[in-house]
């Protein structure tokens, strides 16, 4: 019996020695060939929504980014928005104004009154955007990785600043699934070569090194070969990348009586049942994490209106350009 107890103690001791993950402040630069400034137009019409594939409809065409917003894009936004005074630096955080959510005093309902809310902490482990000499800069090699450690307020602030919006759950789902009943954005199968999810850990640690928080550059899985790692193309039917895996994506809906904000798409920490197109996550709008990012949508009508005013308003020209946000 003493032997048994000894064996257990040894196992516990060995297990306790397991390595802590260090989040690298730099990683190797990878060229994926995918341009995160591109958008695609999703046509209005019916599609199959969620696990039970109920028929749903979207009335108007809309555009959505082909990748998640990158660190580089978000750092640029913060530099511009701080300069314009739409967001503020508060100690080690970026904060911004939110007009509040309608409050019905429903059971377990959170009250979110008007006020300044956290958009993103900077300098916290897991964040790859740092404030250096009054300018937001991205850690080396992380420019093209999806921005993470971003609250729902932070995602919305970005979208609002450029005249975009966060996609609704339905818009997100149609963009991910197209008009058939597939389980994943690229089809009905999943493996470590087609997306960054819980079961890709071994493959990606071999490529990127062991001690990393493991986002991959946006559009990484596009059929390209990196060293000896041949990826498969994870494009959705409309050509969007990373709609399953890499990072969860905030969506825009605020449902009455609850006020959680919802996320779609699964992330690198999740197993396959969270990567399916109907998987849904939620958290408070001020929650941030190393595996949560976002992408934006915009109305086609808005874009056309912007085109018409392009000659007379240089600011609009800057912020509403089709096919580019840089």
């Amino acid at each position: 019996m003493r032997k048994l107890i000894f064996i257990f103690i040894v196992i516990v001791a060995l297990a306790s020695c397991s390595e802590e993950v260090i989040v690298n402040s730099e990683t190797k630069i990878i060229e994926t060939g995918i341009n995160p400034n591109e958008w695609v137009e999703i046509p209005a019409g019916t599609f199959y929504y969620n696990m039970h594939s109920h028929e749903e409809s979207i009335k108007n065409n809309y555009e959505i980014m082909i990748t998640d917003v990158t660190n580089k894009q978000y750092a640029k936004f913060m530099n511009e928005a701080v300069k314009k005074g739409t967001i503020k630096i508060d100690a080690d955080s970026i904060i911004g104004y939110h007009p509040g959510d309608e409050f019905n005093e429903y059971l377990h309902e959170w009250e979110i009154p008007a006020g300044d809310y956290l958009l993103m902490p900077f300098g916290e482990a897991g964040s790859h955007i740092k404030l250096l000499d009054g300018t937001f800069k991205v850690d080396k090699g992380y420019d093209m990785h999806p921005v993470v450690m971003i609250t729902w307020f932070g995602a919305k602030a970005y979208a609002d600043f450029y005249g975009y919006r966060l996609p609704t759950e339905k818009e997100w789902a149609k963009a991910a699934r197209g008009t058939d009943k597939r389980a994943y954005p690229w089809g009905d199968f999943i493996n470590e070569k087609i997306t960054n999810y819980g079961s890709s850990t071994n493959a990606l640690q071999r490529l990127f090194g062991g001690n990393i928080a493991r986002t991959t550059p946006v559009g990484y899985f596009n059929g390209k070969k990196y060293d000896d790692f041949q990826t498969e193309d994870n494009k959705s039917p409309y050509g969007l990348y990373d709609m399953g895996g890499n990072v969860w994506q905030w969506v825009g809906d605020d449902y009455p009586d609850v006020h959680y904000r919802y996320m779609r798409g699964g992330s690198f920490t999740n197993y396959e049942y969270n990567i399916v197109v109907w998987a849904r996550n939620s958290a408070g709008p001020d929650f941030y994490n190393i595996n949560i990012g976002f992408r934006c949508a915009r109305d086609v009508k808005t874009i056309k209106q912007a085109e018409e005013t392009i000659d007379t308003d240089t600011l609009n020209l800057e912020t509403n350009k089709i096919k580019t946000i840089e």
Partner: peptide
């Protein structure tokens, strides 16, 4: 609380649970 720092704990608990 910080997820980036949880990996050590996750590895240990998973290993112990598997064992």
């Amino acid at each position: 609380p910080e997820e980036v720092a949880q990996q050590g704990l996750m590895n240990t608990t998973m290993l112990l649970a598997d064992f």
